[in-house]
């Protein structure tokens, strides 16, 4: 458990974060995105993408019925093909955790809940801590928290750090994913800084976006975070996971993220314990592509 460091320590941590070469990062992400993955490797990558998926519904109009349908789909994504694996987790709002827990009991699918006044994070720390505690008590295995971007952008690193530490405490045994909301951070330098800050504060995962802001996850910004995870691992020996979320809709995009992951963090990270894809509509496209590979005919979205 990380303890709150002095301001001096945090200053040197943040001051030690090197800046990101924007052109190089975008070029590398784009060139890795062009890699062609075919046949057996493609099937393997698509099945891995399913096993890494956090099937997400974060709408104001979510109902217990919709959660039930989502859980069914999470356990058995393709009812006609039992060889398709379950997804990693379902991701939903705290008030629906109880329903999800009920449907997912006895399966490998985890329940992830957003917390800390998702998606803005603009509320009192005590409220955020209470929300997290209640979510864990309701049965959430994983908590997706958002950082206070307002504090981060105005230089209040200490506040952001302290909040993550307190939420991590409130999580107990539940895994903590820290959403940086890269679309609001403004620069790759800030993304890298926020990544290091969150990892130093004890995050189990860092996550790109809430999915409520455009741009959400992009290959370039995910690459910046992967490099931060890699460098953090080299310095401290701690393995932190990564979750790309928002705007990932096609199987092709998902495979591109896996290529980035493999080339940056290597095979150790090619597991659902260390990498996740957060998406609501991606699964259907992945299933279509799998069926295309297995049947040899292009598929219909119907």
């Amino acid at each position: 458990m990380a303890t709150a460091p002095s301001l001096l320590h945090l200053g040197s941590l943040m001051g030690g974060v090197r800046s990101v070469d924007q052109v190089a990062v975008e070029e590398r992400a784009a060139s890795l995105g062009k890699r062609s993955i075919k046949k057996a490797s493609k099937v393997w990558a698509l099945e891995l993408a399913i096993r890494m998926m956090d099937l997400t519904t974060l709408e104001g109009a979510d109902t217990p019925g919709k959660v039930a349908a989502l859980c069914g789909k999470a356990i058995r994504p393709d009812p006609t093909d039992h060889s398709v694996p379950s997804v990693a987790a379902v991701c939903l709002y705290p008030s629906l955790i109880a329903q999800a827990v009920q449907h997912l009991r006895g399966t490998t699918v985890k329940v992830a809940s957003v917390a800390t006044s998702f998606p803005s994070g603009q509320t009192f720390t005590t409220v955020k801590v209470t929300e997290t505690r209640e979510a864990v008590a309701a049965g959430a295995d994983e908590i997706d928290m958002v950082i206070d971007r307002g504090a981060f952008l105005s230089g209040g690193y200490q506040k952001v750090y302290d909040e993550i530490v307190r939420i991590k405490e409130a999580c107990g045994s539940a895994h903590l994913k820290v959403i940086l909301e890269t679309g609001e951070l403004g620069s790759y330098d800030n993304v890298r800084r926020a990544s290091i800050l969150a990892m130093a504060a004890g995050a189990d995962f860092i996550k790109t976006s809430t999915g409520k802001i455009q741009p959400a996850a992009t290959p370039a910004v995910t690459l910046v975070m992967m490099e931060a995870v890699r460098d953090f691992h080299r310095e401290t020996g701690r393995n932190v996971g990564l979750k790309a979320a928002g705007g990932i809709r096609t199987a092709k995009q998902a495979v591109q993220y896996l290529v980035l992951l493999y080339e940056t963090l290597g095979p150790d990270w090619m597991t659902p314990n260390r990498f996740r894809l957060g998406a609501s509509s991606l699964l259907n496209d992945v299933l279509m592509q799998l069926a295309r590979e297995k049947t040899g005919a292009y598929q219909s979205a119907d």
Partner: peptide, 8 residues
């Protein structure tokens, strides 16, 4: 063949 087999 691809047109004939296309599910859409």
């Amino acid at each position: 063949p691809w047109l004939g087999a296309h599910m859409d």
